[in-house]
Computed example of a mutant assay.
Amino acid sequence: MSGFTLGLILIGALVLAALVAYNAWTSRRNTPRRPLASAAAPDPAEAARQEPTLDAGRQEPAFDAAPPPLPVPERRPGLDALIDVLAPIALEAPASGEAALAALPPTRRAGTKPFAVEGLNEGTQQWETPRPGQRYGGFQAGVQLANRVGALNEIEYSEFVMKAQAFADAVNGTPDFPEMLDEVARARELDQFASAHDAQLSFTLRARNAAWSPGYVQQHASRLGFVAGALPGRMVLPASTAGAPPLLGLSFDSQAAMADDPEQSALRQVTLSLDVPQVERGEQPFARMREAATALATGMDGVVTDDNGQPIQPEALDVIGRDLEQLYDTLEARDLGAGSPLARRLFS
């Protein structure tokens, strides 16, 4: 065999070896990473029982922090003139809770705005949602001035009047409605304020190399305190108060989560989100969002980017943090502090 022929054989062998190595590398890169068998991601039932373990007062994720004490359920807010149209209803005689409940309309909305009726409890002298076995010396009907759908309009106000009047007639009461044009103008002003101060932040975490399986994402997120959400492909970081909205959301492709074999599904990005007006300032949600993004990026070999796919630098996050502090101050000055019952209603 000549040297030339031997050289060709060696070159061919090297090319073949390179192709095999490249194909193996490509296959490995495209195979989604799976959770470790010794620490598999919890199923939804197990995840729902977990407590968050991120410590808001620390700069590093506290993976092994002890679960917090069981929180006291939060009292639901009532009607408030700050964000509701209120129509007092004077009664000819006190009415029972049973009569009030029977008189309520079948739907609790006027158009796209929440509608409610409260009674003045004769025993406690507190406004409350009518209850059986109680007696009420008066009522008030209310409709919300604005929400994320927009401001209360004339048609919705008219529907509110019809529902409140029907309730008043059923309990032998006389309503006193405020002037429609004044309330609609107030609704527009509140809606303008809310629209200018409604912040919903999101980071996108993208895979640098190998894709992730849903279980792999769930495994890493659960270490930070995230639990299964109500929808496929969504996890949440619960608040420290029972009944409060979650601090953060983590979402990925719902089709991948519902696949026959989710571990064969390849995810190349997940989204971390914060609904600023819904979460109390004291929970330090943005700091915890940064911690979670950093921990997930490090653990899953990813990079944190904006909506355009550009990496987010720490300096940019510092600017966002300062802007959020100003936003919190503005909301509190309007008596609509982030995470407060009124803010949750307005920004919903």
Rank of each mutant, 00 (worst) to 15 (best):
G3C: 15
F4S: 15
T5E: 15
L6N: 07
L6F: 12
L16Y: 14
L16K: 06
A17S: 11
L19K: 02
S27E: 07
R28M: 07
T31W: 04
R33K: 05
R34S: 08
P35W: 01
A37P: 14
A40N: 13
P42N: 09
P44C: 13
A45D: 13
E46G: 15
D55N: 14
A56K: 12
A56I: 12
P61D: 01
F63N: 10
A65L: 10
A65K: 03
P73A: 08
R75Y: 06
P77N: 01
G78D: 05
P88N: 02
P88E: 00
L91A: 07
S96G: 15
S96F: 07
A100Y: 04
A102C: 11
A102Q: 11
A103C: 02
P106M: 06
R108W: 06
R109D: 11
A110H: 06
K113V: 00
P114E: 09
N121Y: 08
G123L: 15
Q125A: 12
W127G: 01
W127A: 02
T129M: 11
Q134Y: 14
Y136W: 03
Q144C: 06
L145S: 08
A146F: 01
E154V: 14
E154F: 12
S158K: 13
F167D: 01
D169R: 10
A170Q: 07
N172D: 10
D176V: 14
F177W: 02
E179A: 14
A185Y: 07
A185S: 11
D191Y: 09
A194Y: 03
S195N: 12
H197M: 00
H197S: 04
Q200C: 09
L201G: 01
Y216A: 14
Q218T: 10
G225K: 02
F226E: 05
G229A: 03
A230P: 00
P232M: 00
P238R: 05
L247N: 01
L247T: 04
D261Q: 12
R268V: 06
T271R: 09
L274T: 08
P277F: 00
Q278T: 06
V279I: 07
R281G: 08
G282S: 11
E283K: 12
E283D: 09
F286E: 04
A287P: 13
M289D: 05
R290W: 09
L296R: 04
G299N: 08
D301M: 10
V304L: 08
I312F: 05
A316D: 13
G321C: 05
T330Y: 06
R334P: 02
A338W: 00
F347V: 06
S348V: 13
